[in-house]
Design a protein around this nucleic acid. Structure first.
Length: 419
RNA sequence: GGGUAGAUACCGAAGUGGCCAAACGGGGCAGACUGUAAAUCUGCUGGCUCACGCCUUCGAAGGUUCGAAUCCUUCUCUGCCCA
């Protein structure tokens, strides 16, 4: 394994920065610090039973960490989720029960486990839950222990707080988030010799507070590094599609849709995404994305394939790739298993079924009205024939090779297999 | 606790008795052009109906009125100022 050994000897900092992972670092000497193995932690919120593609950056960060010989600590914020994260600012999020959180945490750990190896070895990732040390702390105890070391003046200068003060205000609860997260860092320093924290850019303030708390209470020399916020070149939000978030779980986002999400990336985002979300060597990425023309399609295919493989495994990725190629190729073959499909009874077609409700049934439209607008806008085809009549019935005459294919737009299709 | 400003559809934001399913912008979807790209141009963007039309929606509940997003009452929430 020549490639692996090369990675093992490569400095994590160099690797991360060459792939675009470094937004800010607390320590000018971060490179030095990472020259020898360190335990590093990254936090995840167990507010849902799946992560979405936005979390892929920190996950990949953990992967590189591990490959470069460091120990990744995966922290799930069980305690923080328990009080309900009030950020986001619209309607206080519903409070989750402990069972929910534990279930979510397990599901999330499993997803991360697809990419990062969890075991007892020196570089094996370890799962920790801050509920284990925060939930049973008493208020007084915590106040006495860390209260004296936090300056409110200092906290108020944090960008995250300032921002919230300027628009909408910040609740005391949220103000305390920072304290909890700072405490986590110090706790992990004490128990796991963790000296580095990594996280999204929004975690910068929390990381700093953790470092300061560590210095004051444990004489610890801690450091942190933040990952950049992933942006799309057109300014749109990364990780959203017309259906909503792109999730890592196949139940929430089918593999085919997941694949298509990456396949449809904008040219100007492909190189960045390859750096972030795949393990391809950067010189290969440069080659793939050297030309801003139809050759870029190849790079997108690689991107989609690699990310799908990473999250959903080789078999699923192969399937998605070949189904996609067939569906979008000259043959327009949409019989692949991963193409969205469902069964339909022949008797239904004999009776004739309205096109609009069928579009809704295929989730190609949310309501009959939307389906109708879609038809009126010229976006609907049955097999390859565009349909203009919203009153059109789909019948046995539309069966071709044992199925009926509905298209909404050029990219979305749904196959009804006739039984 | 006192004062004050506000709450409109996915988001921002107009509308201050009928012409309001609610301007405009963003976002989203679709069409054209393309390379499953971007940019651009065009259309659509509450639900049900083939349609006339009907139904639900302007923080919540009541009320006034022939008629309410708009007026009144109470309530809830949010910002700001003062204590």
């Amino acid at each position: 394994m020549p490639r692996l050994s090369r990675l093992m000897s490569e400095n994590l900092y160099d690797l991360l920065s060459s792939r675009g992972f470094v937004a800010q670092s607390t320590d000018a000497e971060m490179r030095q610090r990472l020259a020898s193995p360190v335990a590093t932690y990254v936090g995840f919120d167990p507010t849902a039973d799946s992560l979405h593609v936005g979390s892929l950056v920190p996950i990949m960060g953990l992967k590189w960490l591990q490959q470069c010989g460091h120990k990744p600590l995966v922290l799930v914020g069980g305690a923080t989720a328990l009080v309900g994260d009030p950020s986001g600012k619209t309607a206080m999020r519903q409070m989750l029960t402990r069972e929910d959180i534990n279930r979510n945490a397990a599901a999330i750990a499993k997803q991360i486990g697809q990419v990062v190896r969890f075991d007892e070895s020196a570089t094996g990732a370890k799962l920790v839950n801050n509920a284990d040390w925060l939930v049973n702390k008493s208020w007084i105890e915590l106040l006495r222990e860390v209260g004296p070391h936090f300056s409110v003046n200092r906290m108020l200068t944090m960008d995250s707080v300032k921002g919230r003060m300027e628009n909408g205000g910040i609740s005391f609860l949220e103000f305390n988030y920072m304290v909890m997260q700072a405490y986590d860092f110090v706790h992990l320093y004490r128990t796991e010799k963790c000296t580095v924290q990594m996280g999204g850019q929004d975690q910068w303030g929390n990381i700093i507070m953790g470092m300061e708390l560590g210095r004051r209470t444990a004489d610890a020399d801690l450091a942190g590094l933040t990952f950049p916020l992933v942006t799309k070149s057109d300014g749109g939000k990364f990780g959203k599609s017309e259906q909503g978030n792109i999730w890592l779980s196949a139940e929430r986002t089918p593999v085919y849709d997941f694949f298509q999400f990456w396949r449809n990336a904008a040219d100007s985002d492909v190189a960045k995404f390859l750096g972030f979300f795949t393990a391809l060597p950067m010189d290969e990425v440069k080659q793939l994305t050297a030309f801003y023309d139809e050759r870029m399609n190849n790079a997108k295919e690689v991107l989609a394939y690699e990310v799908t493989k990473l999250i959903h495994g080789l078999t699923a990725a192969d399937q998605a790739l070949s189904d996609t190629k067939k569906a979008f190729g000259a043959s327009h073959d949409v019989t692949g298993d991963s193409i969205p499909h469902a069964n339909i009874q022949a008797s239904e077609l004999e009776a004739g079924i309205g096109l609009l409700p069928l579009l809704v049934r295929a989730s190609l439209a949310a309501s009959n009205g939307e389906a109708k607008r879609l038809v009126a806008g010229g976006g609907v085809s049955v097999h390859n024939d565009r349909i203009d009549d919203p009153g059109r019935k789909v019948t046995t005459a539309d069966i071709k090779d044992g199925y009926v294919l509905l298209r909404a737009g050029k990219k979305k299709h749904f196959r009804f297999d006739v039984q």
